[in-house]
Design a protein around this nucleic acid. Structure first.
Lengths: 133, 133
DNA sequence: GTAATTGCAAAAGATTTGCCCCATT
DNA sequence: AATGGGGCAAATCTTTTGCAATTAC
């Protein structure tokens, strides 16, 4: 494993992600980090998110909407619910036996390293105003 | 529903997607379409993919790798297997009882409109050379 | 002291959009 | 003929990268 340093920038970014369940974008993490380190740059945020992702301490989530990626601190496996109205992302439990399902039975699939489940719909807060979806 | 025209460009793009299972990128669709319509532009490909997606005739898939979206003609619900080595995407069946699972029991979830399953790993073709993953 | 890491700014990609012309209805 | 749609190029937006200066170890 390669050497790495404990910079304040890296620590803050990880702390922000461990403190929330809001699955923030890189831009939001940047804005939050600037409260503690006013000079931190967006490039540094991206570099650290990439590093922490490689270390498996952070997970990147592709949003349902057009915008960029969202991030979360690594926690036990779970799925994500995307609200198609406010674009919020909430953690949801995975069905039992989700990991054990024999995905390898499918043609083409040799081995599995990761599972991702995304459920899209309307969240409780948006439901009243939602015309459907 | 708003008016729309049957342009050759739109027809070709849809035809390309219906003719393949390779989940091509916009760029690849563009290159393929140019064989039939040498003057078609990439912007037109994107505009039509967007239109066809709104019409639910085409689905957009966020690739596992860094690159852009991939597309497929709308067919019955299924999951996607992403090879982490060659970045190929293959259709895989969804577990039975996947759609019936009571996602709405989760806090925050009011209604569900769509399910997305992504399985990441090594495909059969890459498995021999894969060091893991 | 040394090398990993930062800040800054430019670069890179993917996708979108304005505008004017053309083709479908 | 009316107007949706196309081609082209510029504009956006997110993410990456080169480089000189800084800082953790």
């Amino acid at each position: 494993m390669k050497k790495s340093r404990n910079t304040r920038q890296r620590a803050i970014i990880l702390e922000i992600l461990r403190q929330t369940r809001s699955h923030p974008s890189a831009e939001l993490i940047y804005r939050e980090a600037r409260k503690a380190l006013p000079n931190i740059s967006l490039g540094t945020v991206y570099r650290n998110l990439g590093f922490l992702r490689e270390q498996k301490m952070v997970k990147e989530i592709r949003a349902n909407d057009d915008a960029g990626s969202r991030f979360e601190a690594a926690i036990p496996p779970h799925g994500h619910f995307h609200c198609g109205h406010c674009n919020a992302i909430h953690d949801i439990p995975l069905p039992d036996s989700f990991n054990d399902f024999g995905w390898e039975r499918s043609e083409f699939v040799s081995s599995v390293s990761e599972l991702e489940l995304h459920v899209i719909g309307a969240c409780a807060a948006c439901a009243p105003s939602a015309s459907a979806n």
